[in-house]
Write a protein that binds this DNA or RNA. Structure first.
Length: 354
DNA sequence: TAGGGGCCTCGTCACACGCA
DNA sequence: TGCGTGTGACGAGGCCCCTA
């Protein structure tokens, strides 16, 4: 296999003939390639494409599949075919991760192809996740991670991305207002006094002030704001503001049940959880299980949100890598064409003289 | 200048896959 | 086998540009 591809499609990047790398922001080819460096050439990129490997091109909302087949002479022939959704799903599910693809690329020591940092950066990211307040509660002025703020499992209020956040929309929990239906207005108002069963449990987390100014629960009843939870803003001893999501159930009489704020050993430092006390009835148990389920879902959503960010970052990196390869291959193709021309001329000249 | 379309980014869900 | 992770799909919202 020499890695050459006879591209039969007219709109493929390699057949464009342009020296500019094609904008691949919406065109993603799933091709495993191993670049290797050889003397006298800047970079030799050898495509290693499995004969049965299929690629998916998604452009302008249309998904087209690319079947790569061997033509019997060691050449890989790409044929575009229409396939059904099931087949497409099957293909997509077999797709290796961007990290794997890029790391395979980088494992060949190709210059200019950066390996995706897996360990240290990811560990740092995890640490930052565990110790910083998520972006959806950061104001636009607060883009730097704040190490003393606790984690919030899930978005108490579904805020848009930091880029999309209008500063006027996010001014901290308690006075957050919004102008679209997806934003849930949180009004300042109620003050909930939460009693701690053991003051030490608070002080171990550095929480010294437990008088909490709370947004009214009724004002936070959003789809993404599970019933029975509320946002609590409190002040630490050093005066810094912190926010936590706290499950709160209100009795028919309008009384707020007491919750302990504790620091479970399973949670990282800076994370506080609130657990109810004195729940005995089946209804309360059911509420408690539902609350735990919501908490788990919120946690999953939060993690998935971070995972999606990472995935998109890797995807961008992968696309950049492909663009670089396209540029290199185009340059190499030009060089080879020029070389072929010169050799042809030399051969013709030699034939004429003979 | 309003609004319509295209593009980008993000959050969320669903699903496949790998691992303990 | 359950759980965590990675990623495609989808919808929503914002931004930009063009046009009537």
């Amino acid at each position: 296999m020499d890695g050459s591809i006879d591209d039969k499609s007219e709109d493929s990047p390699s057949s464009s003939g342009s020296s500019q790398p094609q904008n691949l922001s919406t065109v993603v080819h799933t091709i495993t390639a191993v670049p290797t460096a050889i003397p006298n050439q800047p970079v030799q990129v050898q495509s290693v494409i499995q004969p049965t490997q299929q690629s998916v091109i998604q452009a302008a909302g249309q998904i087209q599949t690319v079947q790569v087949e061997e033509d019997g002479e060691g050449h890989l022939v790409r044929t575009d075919t229409d396939i059904g959704i099931e087949k497409r799903r099957e293909i997509l599910s077999r797709r290796p991760s961007y990290r794997k693809i890029l790391n395979e690329l980088s494992s060949a020591e190709a210059p200019g192809i950066a390996k995706i940092e897996e360990d240290k950066e990811e560990e740092a990211a995890i640490t930052s996740i565990q110790t910083t307040i998520p972006s959806y509660v950061q104001t636009s002025e607060c883009t730097e991670p704040s190490s003393h703020l606790p984690i919030i499992y899930g978005p108490p209020v579904p805020l848009p991305s930091a880029r999309m956040q209008d500063h006027s929309k996010v001014q901290g929990i308690g006075d957050t207002s919004q102008d679209s239906s997806s934003f849930k207005k949180v009004t300042a108002g109620q003050t909930i006094q939460i009693a701690a069963a053991n003051q030490n449990e608070l002080t171990t987390q550095g929480l010294q002030t437990i008088t909490m100014t709370n947004a009214g629960q009724g004002a936070v009843t959003a789809a993404a704001m599970p019933a029975g939870t509320t946002i609590v803003q409190y002040t630490q001893g050093d005066g810094s503001q912190q926010f936590v999501t706290v499950p709160v159930s209100i009795s028919p009489a309008g009384e707020v049940q007491a919750y302990q704020i504790r620091a479970p050993s399973s949670l990282p430092a800076g994370v506080v959880m609130a657990t109810p006390t004195g729940i005995t009835s089946p209804q309360q148990l059911a509420e408690e299980s539902a609350r735990k389920r919501e908490l788990r879902l919120m946690k999953n959503r939060y993690k998935n949100r971070e995972a999606a960010r990472e995935c998109r970052r890797r995807k961008k990196e992968y696309v950049k890598c492909l663009e670089t390869r396209v540029a290199v291959l185009e340059q190499q193709n030009k060089t080879l064409i020029e070389e072929l021309k010169s050799l042809k001329e030399l051969y013709c000249h030699k034939a004429e003289t003979e």
